[in-house]
Design a protein around this nucleic acid. Structure first.
Lengths: 340, 340
DNA sequence: TGGCGCTATCGAAACGTTTCGCACCAGCAA
DNA sequence: TTGCTGGTGCGAAACGTTTCGATAGCGCCA
């Protein structure tokens, strides 16, 4: 177990060739005669040689490590992203390393420092903030090809793979308005976070599109944090003129709402309707099953990692392209016309 | 962004000292006078130097990469482990890289090859199988300090951090027997997998302890896979003499059962009781709330990574120690006496 | 026969660190 | 003056690769 692993030198000796020839065989980087290839490959098999990725990185300046930076790996939504990225990486011979920021800019920066120390070859980031100041801070910490997932950051030139968040908020709200709701609350995320602001913006827009004014005082922040969303929901639902419907802008916030509903013993959808953004993977066993707006997160993740690998291979300069995926509504049981 | 990062050489030049002196400052590995330290540190700050982890690894033979191998990172149970490991690693200056095996021995081996290529310095593994043959295969693929989590593998000398799985199965089954159930089904995992076998063993033992014989034909395999568990549950529940209660031995299998219950429109606990092993993080919003046997997975994860870091630092030989954590029962709403 | 071009192979430098032996200096005792 | 000692600092080798210029062997044509 205490490992002295074979080196390329051992292979060379065994096959009776030069080190550089073994390297050429390994990388197909130079013409090598058929039977030399065979001899080298035999030697590799016999002594169980695995190339020293660290040495390869150092010499070639290319790293086979991909960094994935997400808000929280324990959130199933992001875990799914990680799984997808891992799959693509593995089949492409890359290794992905995942880190959680906890939506904290300082921790994000700490994480990026680690990534830099490990000299990852590329980065997929779900950023913690989207304002220009953050962009300015980030730009100095990122020295490799990068793709932004889920959210843009002001002033960062990287490709962005996101959903139409305004549409997501719109879809959820529009659905409730059409059902007849007029007092619709929303538990939004962190002000200043594009994803959050856009989804809340869609909520406003939907009201306007129906010639309505979004009611005052019904937009509560929840961060991307379940317990805060729970607080917000309790607040909203304890009011005498409580809303007849609620929109939550992320899976964790839907969870928070569900906790509150359970605690207050509210009947859904008879007494309260709700629509969440992002699906819950156990939605089918919930009672009632939640109506949600879903985003194609898996295709987005796949696209992000593919695009990143391509950039790394081609050395293309980032062009700030934005790839936008459309969300769509899944009507289930948690939404119905308001009580008379 | 296209990164030419500063090297230790640049620092040395700027501070007017030798490279080796900078290294000494960085690692506190040799006495350096106070004002030289100050000059070097100033230089580091000024040019924004981050040590090249790859070069450090290569030269020192020590790697700051920790590999975590789990069945599936998209399973919240394992995502929680990953998060915990990441936290400890980050604060200790290590980087964790997570991989999923999909409970597939071949993929596990592929993953281990990647780990070896990256020369990770230590490994935490939740293995895919526990038999001796697997142990024999694994022993040749692992060349670094390693801790086994959740399950032992026959013939592997590493420290094992696990729960008392027999007790877990026992607790769940005993609870149902005490409630009066006599036809208790169990959806077990993969035969040959210790965790699975032990939990099923606990089910047998509980019957014996009450002077009962575990009913025939009520133990169905579900793998650690939701859809298979769903199939098994459908099978079990479609029978004319269907069990009055069911034990599921992992969170994914409880999910599968819940899908089946929902589809068949069974009332719980009036028509059917169940007890799951491992909690569901959204348990509180489920109706009925599931009765479960929980294992202290977070403390176990913390213990595993701490123990690993210690081993890496001390260079201690593995002693095959087994650290066993006790599971306990949380009675909620899904278990009640059987229908008369 | 000599020169040319092609192919297969080789040797050595380089990537950015750590590590280790050696040199320098001042102070001090002999 | 010489020799020793302890505290600093230096230079160079080494880690395991990739890469690139050099070279040897060979057939071919003039």
């Amino acid at each position: 177990m205490e490992g002295i692993l074979a080196t390329i030198k051992d292979v060379a000796k065994r096959a009776g060739v030069a080190i550089s020839t073994v390297s050429a065989v390994l990388n197909r980087s130079a013409p090598v005669s058929e039977d030399t290839v065979a001899r080298v490959e035999a030697a590799i098999r016999e002594i169980g040689f695995t190339p020293h990725g660290v040495a390869q990185s150092l010499r070639s300046g290319r790293s086979r490590l991909i960094g994935l930076v997400v808000p929280n790996i324990a959130n199933p939504h992001f875990a799914a992203v990680a799984r997808e990225v891992e799959n693509v990486c593995l089949s492409a011979g890359y290794t992905s390393v995942v880190f959680s920021t906890g939506q904290d800019a300082e921790r994000e920066s700490q994480v990026l420092r680690m990534m830099r120390a490990q000299r990852v070859g590329g980065l997929i980031i779900i950023p913690t903030r989207s304002d220009a100041a953050h962009g300015a801070a980030l730009i100095n910490q990122i020295h490799v090809p990068t793709v932004l997932l889920d959210m843009y950051v002001e002033g960062l030139p990287f490709e962005v793979i996101k959903t139409d968040n305004v549409a997501a908020g719109y879809l959820a709200t529009d659905h409730l308005i059409r059902l007849g709701h007029r007092r619709i609350g929303i538990i939004a995320g962190i002000p200043g976070l594009a994803t959050s602001d856009d989804r809340a913006g869609g909520y406003q827009r939907a009201h306007e599109a129906h010639g309505l004014r979004a009611p005052d005082g019904l937009m509560l922040p929840g961060m991307f944090d379940q317990s805060l969303a729970y607080q917000a929901a309790m607040d909203l639902l304890a009011r005498p003129d409580r809303p007849t419907a609620i929109v939550t802008i992320s899976n964790m916030m839907t969870m928070g709402l569900l906790f509150a509903i359970r605690e207050l013993g509210l009947r859904v959808p008879e007494e309260l309707s709700f629509v969440g953004i992002d699906d819950l993977e156990y939605a089918p066993i919930l009672k009632p099953q939640p109506t949600v707006v879903v985003t194609p997160i898996l295709p987005m993740a796949r696209r992000a990692i593919r695009s990143l690998l391509e950039q790394m291979a081609s050395g293309a300069v980032p062009d700030g392209r934005r790839e936008v995926y459309e969300p769509h509504l899944i009507v289930r049981e948690s939404s119905a016309p308001p009580p008379a």
